[in-house]
Design a protein around this nucleic acid. Sequence first.
DNA 1: TCTGAAATTGTTTGTGG
DNA 2: CCACAAACAATTTCAGA
Lengths: 145, 145
Amino acid sequence: MEKLDRQILSLLARDGRMSYTDIGKATGLSTSAAQQRVRKLEQRGVITGYRAMIAGDALGLMLTAFIEVKPFFAEQPDDTPELLSDIEQIVSCYSVAGEANYLLKVQVGSAAELEELLAVIRSKGRVSTHTTVVLSTPYEDRPVV
Amino acid sequence: MEKLDRQILSLLARDGRMSYTDIGKATGLSTSAAQQRVRKLEQRGVITGYRAMIAGDALGLMLTAFIEVKPFFAEQPDDTPELLSDIEQIVSCYSVAGEANYLLKVQVGSAAELEELLAVIRSKGRVSTHTTVVLSTPYEDRPVV
DNA sequence: TCTGAAATTGTTTGTGG
DNA sequence: CCACAAACAATTTCAGA
């Protein structure tokens, strides 16, 4: 990975709407050279997309939790991610080493909704759960580049 | 939260670079009305920023892990997030209820680097750790809106 | 809050080094 | 892989409903 590309990634990781003109100015490239490099980073799958970050509380999503899940029937083929993928409160799903098989990050409006969600996950996913409630988030999703 | 605003958030959560012109077309608003609403969502702190999403492996970050941390000296004022905030491999820090005080999400290049990182976190943060390694990520950071 | 128009700025594409 | 320039498109601002 070239230095110039890393620099562009760093800029776009911090401001996903930065213009090619400004990327060019910041890197010493022309607008079109900057645009070409960004396009190639997208095509090569280095940049996988652009997102607006949204404050959950503005949407009434005031409770975040991590849920470790373990299938009841360990011998069967494990399709837990697919079984749970249409539950929109689950924002992330990680397959993990350790006691649990999967770690889910979920976002809900209330404790009552979390209780309901856990029931759905357990029945739908045929899993047992262990939940860790998030009290606050000092920082999240800092750019890695 | 108005329906029109939710619609705009949904669009920008999926494509953070969508133009105001296209947001206008998708919502039935004029370009300038779409832009005004986005600006207000930003000012009100509903939209907290824009990010390019970057594939970690393209940067040589092939190992993700979650680390639960617990201070050695529970009686002291707890400034763990600040103590650790300059460690760039830590991408997220959650204060949690349960056995641990904090849950960290980290991204590193190798197992050796994770080992080194754990040593840094333990000494710098004066904490004990419990680590869960991520094997794969079926999905992550799906839009909540 | 919205539209519509005008001025500015950014994007995209082609040519050529 | 780059710069430059021309054609095109988006953004920004403002007047007025």
